[in-house]
Design a binder for these strands. Structure first.
Length: 660
DNA sequence: GACTAACGTTTTTTT
DNA sequence: AACGTTAGTC
């Protein structure tokens, strides 16, 4: 046995031992949920369940990696490798890579991610005459995604312009044999729903299914699970309705609130002993969350009694807020040798981090940023992946169109449009049109024609190498040289550090490719993983020492001894859009998630003023603060605090004087 | 077709 | 204050 069942509390033990039939584990924040789930999986192996038949689905890559790691500590490496532990989206990709042809796509489909989508949408906005209406691609993408996740046909979108863009978008994706993130779920479900042979195959394969962070699942994902699980319904879902913070993305709390309706007679197990936070922190959290109406009643008990009272400090402005947090962290680090990693600063929106980052740099505090926007679009990586995908299969339009003129090689937007139009006319891929020498010669100027032919030759050359089993990393090296990509990229960087970072990223890809086994299917897997993995720096971030700056959303599932919850103002923490959308409860859950990240020390702050794009704006404290029991925290005003500090310094100076 | 300069807009959360 | 987009030029 790879774990000690006696180290678990009775509830956790019950969870571990409930292997057969539907199981609902209601696991409050910090109650050892991951521990219970990973032990449960290890226990399954002890019961002679084959590792191949175990499927564990998570919501984020980070969670999947963590679970894989923790399970890996308890079972043999061989067993760990045989299990399937992945996100919903990568599960769908796996299903679809095997059988998507049954629902009308080619198996070589590509995945259209953020920048692919917005690129296409911007073109369509222009085409549909929406440029005057100041529509942003992000808006359209959000509307499309909402519709898809609620299974509303795009043809039924109310706004005419949005509708026509959405419909054209879907048509174009289809023509490019590409799926966006939502399509992955939709088509996987369709595949399972419509093809009983496929359904039977996967039901036979995955006999024991576990779903983590179940409160985040959508109606769509629920249907997918129902197809995937059959009698005797060995499905175990783990979650906490109080931590449901992805409603805006289609998460249905009903899935967890009414689990019985989907799988009858589940064993319900409640994990209510919180091992993470001190009693005083937990009291605050409980006081907050009880203001929400729709929830499974539960009482979190603190394992760690007592503890320091959380602090609430009012700040004159965001500058002072950042300054204060940075200074206090630095002092504690110096005075008590508290390692940087123990501190985290939590905020509602990505834009709030800027000031904090500045302060950290000024005080020379090492920090790591999680979930910042700038992080997301790693153009160089996506470009390189697109090149590799094109070399694997040039009929894949999405990656082809991405790199056709990146770096610029004389095939501009107009020429590209002509190529696409012709491809749609012929019902073929763009690549096939490029191969048609007669068409190219007749349509384009000599200059453009040559550019196209050169690109075709270049691609064919690399394809041939791949066929001859030249290692991917060698091909990669060659394409870097042939395209002059690195030089072009560096020319487009503003700062030296940016140059460094981007170049480094490119060579990191080469390193990972050189570790890759030979063969097309391995490369395919690698590319799929890259497309779905926005978490990118697996090792980078975890190993980097420093204070964590993180959004509330990204902080779910994590814990820190010292937590700073900053920017607790109306408009930010209940976010101003939540009032219009009627999602105040979700904002409160977000606050709850923030509080429950803290183990020993929690410091909350709000500002009287804040600089919003240059302008000074006044703010009022969050409505959630008024809901807290006054005895539950210590309130201080920034001015008082500074006066105290000054006093202490005066006193110290006085003492020194007297001594001398 | 590619590059530069000036303009205008912007901030929720993410697979 | 910073970013992206647009229009104008080579």
């Amino acid at each position: 046995m790879g774990f000690n069942i006696n180290k678990l509390n009775p509830e956790q033990r019950a969870a571990v031992e409930a292997i057969h039939g539907p199981v609902l584990i209601l696991a409050g924040a910090g109650t050892g949920k991951t521990r219970a789930v990973t032990c449960r999986i290890a226990h399954m192996l002890d019961q002679d369940i084959r590792p191949e038949s175990i499927l564990a689905v998570t919501f984020t890559n980070k969670a999947a990696n963590e679970m894989r790691e923790r399970v890996g500590e308890m079972v043999t490496a061989k067993a760990a490798r045989a299990m399937t532990i992945c996100t919903f989206h990568s599960l769908c990709v796996r299903l679809l890579r095997q059988d998507i042809d049954k629902v009308g796509y080619k198996k070589s489909f590509s995945i259209a991610t953020g920048s692919d989508q917005s690129g296409l949408i911007s073109q369509l906005i222009v085409k549909k005459g929406g440029s005057k209406e100041k529509i942003k691609p992000a808006q359209v993408i959000s509307v499309i995604s909402q519709a898809k996740s609620k299974s509303i046909p795009l043809e039924e979108i109310e706004d005419e312009l949005f509708r026509s863009i959405a419909v054209a978008y879907q048509k174009e994706l289809r023509a490019r044999n590409a799926l966006d993130f939502d399509d992955l779920l939709i088509l996987a479900e369709k595949l399972l729903a419509e093809h009983s042979s496929v359904r039977a195959k996967f039901r036979e394969y995955f006999r024991y299914v576990t779903v983590d962070e179940f409160q985040d699942t959508s109606a769509q994902q629920m249907r997918l699970l129902q197809h995937l699980v059959s009698i005797p319904y060995n499905i175990c879902v783990v979650g906490d309705d109080d931590q449901s913070i992805y409603g805006w993305r289609g998460a249905e709390v009903t899935n967890i609130l009414q689990f019985e309706k989907f799988f009858e007679n589940p064993k319900v197990i409640r994990l209510e002993t919180n091992y993470r936070s001190s009693e005083s922190i937990l009291n605050l959290a409980n006081a907050t969350i009880k203001n929400n109406a729709d929830r499974r009643e539960k009482t979190l008990r603190a394992f760690k009694k007592g503890g320091e009272l959380p602090r609430l400090i009012s700040m004159p402005g965001d500058k002072e807020e950042a300054e204060f947090v940075a200074e206090e962290i630095k002092n504690r680090h110096l005075d008590y040798e508290t390692p940087w990693e123990r501190f985290a600063v939590l905020f509602r929106t990505n834009t709030q981090i800027r000031k904090m980052e500045e302060a950290m740099r000024e005080h020379e505090i090492p920090y790591r940023l999680i979930g910042a926007q700038s992080f997301y679009d790693r153009r160089e990586i996506k470009d390189m992946m697109a090149y590799l995908e094109v070399i694997m299969d040039a009929t894949a339009d999405v990656p082809l169109l991405r790199i056709m003129n990146t770096p610029p090689r004389g095939i501009g937007l107009n020429s590209t449009m002509l190529l696409i139009d012709q491809a749609r006319l012929r019902n073929s891929s763009t690549w096939e049109v490029m191969l048609d020498e007669v068409f190219v010669k007749e349509t384009f100027s000599k200059k453009v024609g040559n550019a196209i032919n050169d690109f075709v030759d270049f691609t064919l050359g690399l394809q041939e190498k791949l066929d001859q089993e030249v290692p991917a990393s060698d091909i990669y090296e060659e394409l870097l040289i042939a395209t002059g990509y690195v030089e072009w990229l560096k020319n487009n960087c503003k700062t030296e550090t940016e140059k460094h970072q981007r170049e480094e990223a490119i060579y990191e890809v080469k390193d990972s490719l050189s570790r890759l086994e030979l063969g097309l299917s391995k490369l395919r897997e690698y590319l799929d993983k890259a497309a779905l993995d926005s978490d990118k720096d697996d090792d980078d971030l975890d190993n980097k020492p420093g204070v964590t700056l993180i959004t509330l959303h990204a902080s779910k599932g994590l814990e820190y001894p010292n937590v700073y919850l900053v920017g607790l103002e109306n408009g930010f923490l209940p976010h101003k859009r939540s009032a219009e959308e009627g999602t105040t409860d979700e904002e409160r859950r977000l606050f709850y998630v923030g509080i429950t990240r803290a183990m020993d020390d929690l410091c909350m702050t709000y500002c009287a003023t804040r600089t919003k794009w240059g302008q000074l704006e006044s703010c009022e404290p969050s409505a959630f603060i008024a809901e807290l029991p006054e005895a539950g925290y210590i309130f201080t005003d920034h001015a008082e605090l500074m006066a105290e500090v000054a006093d202490e310094e005066d006193m110290a100076a006085l003492l020194r004087e007297m001594k001398s």
